[in-house]
Design a protein around this nucleic acid. Structure first.
Lengths: 216, 216
DNA sequence: AGGATATGAGTGGTCAGACCACTTTCAAAA
DNA sequence: TTTTGAAAGTGGTCTGACCACTCATATCCT
């Protein structure tokens, strides 16, 4: 029963230690040699546990310095999972739809959760619409951040990188128009219209892409 | 540059090997000593990579037998992450919201994409509602599958494991009612009502959870 | 001959000790 | 005072040695 899988116990012990001593992200934990002795295990066994934690993004090791708790708010979960979640589901369609799904949800959240003085945010956003280098991705990223769900943001970011953005250097007139309409609706907290405009924009974009070279 | 993090290279190499030799879940991979020699690394270093893969649920080791590719993925991953990461309430909230986001999107897709003869699906679903062991998770899983977006399904599956399901053995009367209403609306392809009922259900659930012991 | 038993090879699990590469510190040298 | 460099401490890696376990095989007893 107690046999095998000792490194899992170590993972638990480390977690307990972190909790008991109220260590925070960025704090340094004892050296491998110290931990190994304290827990009465060999250093290599301890390292097996540490590597697991590192792969998950829970700790961070710096050679010559030590081992530190990393900010687990940045769900490393997503990166790790992406390496083998996305490998089978290469369906571009799925990626695109999932990405869209997060974007629309963000818009809805923003429209409904409006607190107070985010007004200046919309102004600065609007002013940037005119820039040539302000693409759809930039626009949506702002929305994703504003929605406040960092996990969703992380997933979106990944999907975005994954599906690629074959945008031109300059943003087309149509896109600016769509952006403008969407933004206007969001400002008015008109969820229905905002989502509607955004979907229209996305559909238009999809058609544009298939018309041009649809890569793989 | 190439220094440090060798075990990450090994993780990649093993993945490549698996892919090249077309190994399937359940298949045995070479022994640690073999792999170590083939990859020109020490056995302990190799083991660090293996433990990471094991924690992710990608491989399974059996003492005295060998190391095998695992088929049921990410159990330990979720287990470990949940104890670590989810101490943060904000993370909890994010996971829940993101999960909900996928669920609602699935419902919308289903309502709008209805093809033809999925009628029998609803009947069988409805009949299962009465079972004591038919929980929200089972209900939603069906919907996720039906939505047809496998990537979204996969993400949802993970988040579900991640946030845990503190459900009772029996499903409450209220839940059955919510399920029933939601299902009815979906059958009628009434997107608005379906989403509305589902959200009501979710809100209710959230309150229930906070009322009872909200387990850290 | 047939079934129980012993043995050995192979495997993962663990450990101790030894280097290496790197960072930080701080005291000695300029 | 500034520079230098040696030492201590840390993570990264490798080796070789056991242990505990599984399985196939050979061996023994009836």
């Amino acid at each position: 029963m107690n046999q095998s899988k000792r490194y899992l116990d170590i993972v638990r012990d480390i977690r307990d230690m972190v909790r008991q001593e109220k260590l925070k992200p960025g704090d340094r934990i004892p050296s491998e040699r110290e931990l190994a002795e304290k827990m009465q295990v060999g250093r290599s066994t301890l390292r097996e546990a540490l590597r697991s934690l590192e792969l998950l993004g829970l700790i961070e090791t710096r050679r010559g310095e030590g081992t530190f708790l990393s900010d687990h708010r940045n769900h490393k979960l997503v990166e790790v999972l992406s390496t083998f979640i996305l490998q089978d589901n290469r369906s571009h369609e799925d990626v695109w739809e999932t990405r869209l799904l997060h974007e629309i949800a963000a818009i809805q959240i923003i429209c409904q959760n409006r607190t107070t003085s985010q007004l200046n945010v919309w102004d600065s956003l609007r002013s940037r619409l005119k820039e040539d280098s302000f693409h759809r991705e930039d626009f949506v990223r702002e929305l994703m951040v504003l929605s406040g769900n960092r996990l969703s943001l992380k997933i979106w970011f990944l999907l975005t990188q994954y599906s690629g953005n074959p945008y031109d250097e300059t943003v087309s007139v149509e896109e600016v128009d769509y952006m403008d309409k969407t933004l206007l609706a969001i400002e008015k907290q008109d969820t229905t219209t905002a989502v509607h405009e955004f979907k229209a924009w996305s559909d238009w974009l999809k058609k544009e892409r298939t018309r041009n070279g649809d890569h793989t």
